[in-house]
Design a protein around this nucleic acid. Structure first.
Lengths: 238, 238
DNA sequence: GCAAAAGTGTTAACTATACACCCATGC
DNA sequence: GCATGGGTGTATAGTTAACACTTTTGC
């Protein structure tokens, strides 16, 4: 059985745009590249898809290896496969974006790799088309987060209303009316109020909330039935 | 320069989920497969990414070859790359979905290939994981169409309000209130009313509309700023 | 004249927006 | 006691949802 024998083969890579929110800005995790070519330049973490794994598995493996984290929210972003996108060989890259709780990462990080968080709004030049990958991932994240409450994946187990609001502001580059946004959140059924307060950012303290896991899963998994709302949401500069 | 030399390579394919709307149901175009393995079974149209082309270009090439149509709306759907997804060799497939005006297709079709439209709700068994590809494409189309008015790509230049409504109904498996839906459409700024009427489906006739291309492009291209609306739109059975 | 589809208008419920003040606390 | 960020309430506008009848015309 030797079908397809005249078809060209390619190297298949995965690259990951890892988003993290530190309470101030939305960040991406970049790595000093450890292999040739372009060694020591900033890049997205990536690797090659091995013979026994699917691309998704490869992305999860790369993330596990580089951040120590498993069970991370990963979403496919886009394939980058222009014939000349890398200099020396043809490599087709499938990009994923991951949403992680930056604090978990800080505890587990192995310092085997030179990695650094950069604000999404200000990161250094990257190799190949990695900057483009980030822009696409950002756009996909915005679309996804408009329909599903995925941004909670960026927050710790316990979080405060001001934190969520800031996260949405940074994700969409907008300024929200906190009063209205709070109300929307509280009415969503997603949040369970805790007694404990976060006193790190104010004297009064802000109540912690946690996710109602059941409601959250339902909303995350739900299959869209109807929503077309293409009259709103875009190009309205504040 | 012989970087990456120990990395495995794969065959890279593209498969296309071609959506078409015939005025009654939302359909997909399936082909009797012309090559081994699995020759003569129903499948999604596809092909291999060649050395000098990007996956997107490959998808466009396949569509052109099989349907005769160029300048079609194509969107990347998802990568299918489980190691064992094909029986004989490892092939990683990037799936795209295309939205075409079924009537244009009917004029241009070359009958070199055995192809047939099937309703999205009732198509024959397919090879490999192609059924899964269709399900994913449907989900992606729903999400996309919730934020951007892409479904107009499925309609002819001139279309009527009842046609659009039916298209949305078939896409989301819902029943719409035509009065409200009409109003929403007319207020969207997307439509330009023509004098001419379509008399094929009623005695009275329904006015034709065409797209306001400028408004349409703006809405299609627009970069999401804010919209989170994860309180609505899902799991509400009628 | 009647069947069959197209089209329209009104009210009620809801959601989003705009806006300003009090609260709790550490210093 | 005051500066700082946290939290709440209300009125308005806008949007969506629910609802039924009239229009047109080919037969």
């Amino acid at each position: 059985m030797d079908f397809y024998k005249n078809e060209p083969s390619v190297l298949l890579a995965v690259d990951c745009v890892i988003f993290g929110f530190d309470g101030e800005s939305l960040n991406i995790l970049l790595f000093k590249r450890a292999i040739e070519p372009e060694i020591n330049k900033w890049s997205l973490p990536g690797g090659f898809v091995q013979a026994d794994e699917s691309p998704e598995t490869a992305a999860a493996r790369v993330l596990k290896k580089l951040t120590g984290l498993a069970d991370i929210y990963i979403e496919e972003s886009q394939v980058f496969g222009a014939p000349d996108r890398e200099t020396y060989r043809r490599v087709v890259s499938i990009t994923y974006y991951a949403l992680i709780d930056i604090h978990k990462y800080e505890h587990i990080i192995t310092h085997e790799y030179e990695a650094k968080w950069f604000p999404l709004s200000d990161y250094p030049p990257l190799i190949f088309d990695h900057q483009h990958m980030i822009e696409v991932a950002k756009r996909k994240l915005r679309s996804k987060a408009a329909l599903y409450p995925v941004l909670f994946e960026l927050l710790p187990e316990k979080f405060t209303l001001p934190q969520i609001a800031l996260l949405y502001e940074k994700t969409y580059d907008i300024v929200l009316d906190r009063r209205n946004f709070n109300r929307k959140l509280l009415h969503s059924g997603l949040l369970i109020k805790l007694q404990e307060k976060d006193k790190t950012s104010s004297k009064r303290g802000a109540y912690y909330f946690k996710l109602d896991k059941d409601v959250y899963k339902e909303k995350i998994m739900s299959f869209l039935r109807y929503l077309p709302s293409w009259n709103i949401g875009s190009e309205k500069d504040q």
